[in-house]
């Protein structure tokens, strides 16, 4: 039986955010507090094709296109600053 992995360290966490959004700021602070390694993009700071590409990618996970959107392992999507769920998923 495979050893149970530590959920936190082995998960790929990506955050779609806006630089102006205070809930996104709180999300980043929570991920930092939890010691989660994550990549993020502030979509409002992108331009042109790059912005379109990121939007298309985000739309697949969250068609509502609301911020913040956290994607874990390319399959779990948490829309909004849902502190309880973030803590449960990434504890």
């Amino acid at each position: 039986m495979p050893e149970k992995k530590s959920r936190k360290s082995n998960r790929k966490v990506f955050l779609f955010a806006l630089s102006t959004c205070i809930w996104c700021r709180k999300t980043k602070a929570l991920l930092d507090e939890l010691g989660v390694k994550y990549d993020f993009v502030d979509v409002d700071l992108l331009e042109g094709e790059e912005k379109e590409r990121v939007r298309n990618r985000m739309r697949k996970f969250n068609p509502q296109m609301s911020f913040p959107t956290i994607v874990i392992d390319d399959e779990v999507c948490i829309a909004g600053f849902d502190e309880k769920r973030i803590r449960e998923e990434l504890r």
Partner: peptide
């Protein structure tokens, strides 16, 4: 204009 800070304008 004052676009909502928490939405993508």
């Amino acid at each position: 204009y004052w676009a909502c800070p928490c939405r993508l304008a």
